[in-house]
Simulated assay, not measured.
Amino acid sequence: MNGNVITVLSTKGGVGKSTLARFIAIVANEQGKRVCIIDTCQNSSIATGFLKDRDSFQHSAYDWLIGEAKPSEVIQQYENTNIYYIPSDERIDDYEDWVSRKVTKPKQLEVLKTKIEPLKQIFDLIIVDTHPSENSDIVNYSIAASDYCVIPVEIDLDAKLAAKRCIEIIEDYQSAGYKIDYGLVWNKVEVTKGKAKIQLKNMKDELVKYGIMESKFVGEIRYSTTVSTSKNEGIMLNAIDNKYTMNVMNDIRKVSNTIFDKIVEGVHNEQAVTY
């Protein structure tokens, strides 16, 4: 895996996008991969998840995206790890307007892809955390820049509908020639409760009937009060000696490794077609 781009998206808020982005970065770091998370949401949950004040940075993703800051001025390192991130702030919402004024129509959809391209020479994996809205142009810029999209889904009707909508959007890009794959991650699953298992099976069955292949279900991450109540929202879960936390981290590792394998498989398939 070399310089691949993952976008974590959902049209529904609260499904664990930012937390999942950090989890994937943790697993990548454990495997010796250099990873950079780009935060494109005004809440800047990536920065706070790495225990940093979102207002403490001199420059943010917005400054980098509009060309007023170099990558070296916005990329932050998380402690002594291979995890790096570009924080965001409330100005990110102005980026769409900046693009509409400064970038010609044919190039607008590729603006983020163009900015990310040099980072592929530095990082093995680039993760984009997005705002929960299908009407955001930045979400579309992120999808267009991606090799793989991760859609976290909780077991409820709104989350299921959001997943369907995300898939429709991605399939529109695929139809337009973009080489993008995607996978659904079942998040906050209460694995010990029989009713929750039945609800999960019913949701999977409904999505399969909708036309989504089971191979798109890349795994489940169980619910844990340790995760939901942790002050750091789980960023140090891999360092907590707690059997419930260890179970969650093992789920996260399985999901992340499946995603990594899917990306490698996609690259090989594309090369086979090319050659």
Rank of each mutant, 00 (worst) to 15 (best):
K113V: 04
K120T: 14
T81H: 00
L157P: 12
D89L: 05
V153T: 15
D94S: 14
P87N: 07
Q108C: 06
E73N: 11
D93Y: 11
R101W: 05
Q108K: 09
I143E: 02
I122Q: 13
E73I: 09
D124S: 13
L119K: 04
V103P: 03
I126C: 04
E73V: 02
I75H: 07
R101H: 13
V103F: 05
V139W: 07
E79I: 14
S72N: 13
I143M: 09
V74F: 01
I122L: 14
K160I: 08
D158T: 12
C149S: 07
I66N: 00
I155N: 01
D97W: 09
P118F: 02
K120I: 12
R165K: 15
D93L: 15
I86W: 01
Y148H: 12
I75A: 07
Y141V: 02
A162H: 05
S142P: 08
Y78K: 08
E73S: 09
I75P: 05
G67E: 06
V99P: 00
V74Y: 00
A163H: 01
I151M: 01
S88Y: 01
E96F: 08
H59I: 07
I122H: 15
S142F: 09
K164A: 11
I127N: 08
Q77I: 12
Y84S: 11
A144C: 08
Q108V: 11
I155E: 03
I83F: 08
E96H: 06
C149G: 09
P118V: 13
S100A: 12
I86H: 03
I151C: 04
D156S: 02
S88H: 02
P118R: 08
E134M: 15
W98H: 00
V111T: 04
I126P: 03
D93F: 06
K70G: 11
P106C: 12
Y62R: 02
I75T: 04
Q121N: 12
R101E: 12
R101C: 06
F123C: 05
D147G: 04
L119A: 08
W64C: 03
Y148N: 09
H131A: 15
I167L: 01
E96K: 11
E73H: 09
A61V: 07
D63V: 03
P152A: 06
V103S: 10
